Amino acid sequence: MKVPTGCMFTHIIRGEGKTITYQNAGVDCGFVGALNAGFCNWRIDFTYADTDNKTYRTSRGKTHTECKINPMRDHAPQKLPRYGKACAQIYVNGVRRAGQCHHITK
Rank of each mutant, 00 (worst) to 15 (best):
F9M: 07
F9G: 01
F9D: 11
T10E: 07
I12T: 14
I13S: 05
I13M: 11
I13T: 15
R14M: 10
G15Q: 01
E16M: 01
E16I: 07
G17N: 11
G17P: 04
G17F: 05
I20K: 03
Y22F: 09
Y22H: 05
N24F: 15
A25V: 12
A25W: 03
G26T: 03
V27K: 01
D28T: 12
D28K: 12
D28H: 04
V32L: 15
V32R: 06
G33H: 08
A34K: 04
L35F: 14
L35I: 10
F39M: 08
F39D: 00
N41H: 02
W42G: 02
R43Y: 01
R43N: 13
D45S: 05
D45N: 09
F46R: 06
T47F: 04
Y48D: 01
Y48W: 13
Y48A: 01
D50C: 00
T51S: 00
D52C: 03
N53E: 14
N53A: 12
N53S: 15
T55G: 01
Y56N: 05
T58H: 07
T58F: 05
S59M: 05
R60V: 11
R60S: 13
T63P: 01
T63Q: 14
H64R: 07
H64M: 14
H64Y: 14
T65M: 05
E66N: 13
E66R: 15
C67H: 10
C67I: 07
K68Q: 14
K68D: 14
K68C: 08
I69L: 13
I69Y: 08
I69C: 10
M72P: 11
H75M: 09
A76Y: 09
P77I: 01
P77W: 06
Q78I: 13
R82W: 06
R82C: 01
Y83K: 03
G84N: 00
K85V: 00
K85N: 09
A86N: 07
A86F: 09
C87H: 00
C87Y: 03
A88N: 04
Q89M: 12
I90M: 10
I90P: 01
